[in-house]
């Protein structure tokens, strides 16, 4: 009960931001909240946000864990391209759906192990270590697809990107279930505590007996796995693996989602739920821009302005000022009351 209220308090700023963005979009585009049922699938802009936000939401789950250990994973966009390429070429070679997914997700895990070893064993700074795969990964994906968009039409694989269950697109289920699952695992086991501990003070954590190397490799693997899922969804969505463009710059959106979610880049305390809301905030801005009908030259400017406002409102100074204002008001009220009594 008490913990529930505390958890709600933790994500309150993100929820308020999301609500504000949605209201803003609805003001620009009045039909925004309309949802209808067509061809057995729910149809409407809010559904689009949930669906289109799936890759960034999945990336943000893994990124949250990595950032909580005071790391960062720049390679997730490239890993998306790799896993999409692996899935497309596997299915093109006639492998079954299960084998294809296993290979694609396996590729993501492998990328995670690579990053994890560079960071945890060789002690390379995470931003540099993952930069290597960020640059090389897209080249690997291009080698797999031989430079072309590798198209496929396997109904099972396409279902992951475009299928619906109970009217909702499949990617929505995938990111929500993954988020719930990872959230449960880190909070119901001791993983969350151990990850936060590493992020706050790596050396002290090691001295307290935490297996820091294995744990670091594990979080980069989790990030790789999430990126691989996002990559399969992105490929299935367009029925092809586009090595040049799949997941391009999405690592930055994922980091932004985590930051908007209030997890510090200095590691420590994290909230997967808040990061997921952060991802939805970013997607709401993207979708809102598209719906607004402004010329595309303004896209980046509008997005940057909105995000700047969000981050300024969430900055420690503003939060402190806000709290102080509330306290002053409260004490003033209290004084008035005592004056009257």
């Amino acid at each position: 009960m008490n913990a529930g209220i505390r958890a709600l308090g933790r994500i309150a700023p993100q929820l308020a931001t999301l609500a504000a963005i949605l209201i803003l979009v609805a003001a620009v585009f009045p039909g925004f909240f309309d949802i209808s049922l067509a061809n057995g699938r729910l149809y409407g802009s809010p559904i689009d946000i949930l669906n289109r936000g799936a890759p960034v939401a999945l990336l943000a789950i893994g990124m949250t864990l990595v950032i909580a250990t005071r790391g960062i994973d720049l390679s997730v966009g490239a890993v998306m391209a790799i896993s999409g390429a692996v899935a497309a070429s596997a299915i093109a070679q006639g492998l079954g759906l299960a084998a294809t997914l296993a290979l694609a997700l396996g590729a993501g895990l492998l990328c995670g192990i690579w990053n994890g070893i560079l960071v945890a064993v060789l002690g390379i700074q995470p931003i540099v270590a993952t930069l290597i795969l960020m640059v090389a990964g897209r080249g690997i994906a291009q080698l797999i697809t031989e430079g072309a968009i590798l198209t496929f039409s396997h109904p099972g694989l396409l279902f992951i990107g475009g299928g619906t269950i109970a009217g909702l697109p499949m990617p929505v289920f995938i990111w929500i279930i993954t988020g719930l699952l990872v959230g449960l695992i880190v909070r119901r086991t001791a993983l969350g505590l151990l990850i936060e501990s590493i992020g706050v003070n790596l050396r002290a954590s090691r001295l307290a007996g935490i297996n820091t190397k294995i744990l670091l490799v594990a979080v980069y693997m989790a990030s790789g796995l999430c990126a691989a899922m996002a990559g399969v969804i992105a490929a299935a969505d367009i029925r092809g693996a586009d090595a040049n463009n799949a997941g391009l710059w999405l690592e930055l959106d994922a980091i932004l989602a985590v930051v908007i979610g209030g997890t510090s880049l200095l590691g420590g305390r994290f909230s997967i739920l808040a990061s997921l809301i952060g991802a939805m905030i970013i997607q709401s801005v993207n979708t809102g821009i598209l719906l607004s009908g402004f010329p595309p030259e303004f896209n980046l400017l509008i997005k940057a302005t909105i995000i700047l406002i969000i981050l300024v409102l969430q900055s420690p100074r503003m939060v402190a000022a806000f709290r102080a204002g509330r306290r002053v008001r409260k004490t003033a009220e209290a004084k008035e009351e005592s004056a009257f009594s």
Partner: peptide
């Protein structure tokens, strides 16, 4: 500070 406590926890 550096080897013992996990300050934020």
């Amino acid at each position: 500070k550096s080897d013992g406590i996990i300050g934020d926890l």
